[in-house]
Design a binder for these strands. Structure first.
Length: 87
DNA sequence: CATTTGACGCCAA
DNA sequence: TTTGGCGCCAAAT
């Protein structure tokens, strides 16, 4: 029985994504224990405004960025910035 | 407890 | 390549 809600597991997974790296919603769902809950992952991340949880590093499996609760432009910016600093 | 809501994913057309 | 439709699921209402 789940001592942690799905929400908590998602945050734990996303908190572990390192700078310059990205995960798909699907992969986050898998790591959180429910491979078919990709959509629900979005619903959870949508409520996150904690900077310690880098939810901008979660993208769609088709290569598109996906959404962001502070504007997609913001998400693009953060990712571009991290990609550059990786080089 | 029943419904609605979408930061998703897959596939046929 | 792009679109529409549908299945899926946790959260919110």
């Amino acid at each position: 029985m789940p001592t942690q809600s799905f929400k908590e597991k998602v945050f734990r997974v996303v908190r572990g994504i390192r700078r310059g790296g990205v995960l798909t919603y699907q992969e986050v769902a898998r790591r959180a224990g429910n491979p078919r809950a990709a959509r629900a992952v979005g619903a959870v991340l949508r409520t996150n405004f904690n900077p310690a949880i880098p939810c901008h590093r979660v993208v769609r499996s088709n290569g598109a960025l996906g959404g962001y609760n502070r504007g997609v432009g913001r998400k693009r910016f953060l990712l571009a910035r991290e990609r550059l600093s990786e080089l």
